[in-house]
């Protein structure tokens, strides 16, 4: 059963990471890209958690914490220093 769970979660996380990367590449504004990279970091932390749960070890726990710290600092910093450079709002 564990291998089935591992395979299912690997497929789901791969699809989710692909979606987040597509939004990073396409995203019309800088803040969309920051948000999508935050989601990508959350997906990475979730994959590390799955690895720890399936193989029953705690080696990556500090890495998960560090990933959440990096996501927090990164999005706060970019949101603080973002500037409006667009000509008209709400372009598609």
């Amino acid at each position: 059963m564990m291998h089935a769970v591992l395979a299912v979660t690997a497929v789901i996380f791969s699809l989710a990471a692909a979606g987040a990367i597509i939004r990073i590449a396409r995203g019309p504004s800088l803040l969309d890209r920051v948000l999508a990279s935050d989601v990508l970091l959350a997906i990475l932390g979730g994959a590390l958690c799955i690895d720890m749960a399936v193989n029953r070890h705690l080696n990556n726990l500090m890495l998960v914490l560090a990933i959440s710290v990096i996501g927090f600092i990164g999005s706060v910093t970019v949101a603080r220093f973002v500037a409006d450079r667009r000509e008209q709002p709400n372009e598609p």
Binding site: V5, V8, T9, I12, F13, L15, A16, A17, A18, G19, A20, I22, R23, S29, L31, D32, L35, A36, V39, A42, I43, G46, C49, I50, A53, V54, N90
Partner: peptide, 22 residues
């Protein structure tokens, strides 16, 4: 719990792709 937690990530990715604004 593992499968549902993974589905949360997939939901976030689908929401990122399909929702209209920030």
């Amino acid at each position: 719990f593992m499968v549902v937690g993974a589905v949360m990530s997939l939901g976030a990715a689908i929401g990122l792709l399909r929702f209209p604004d920030l």
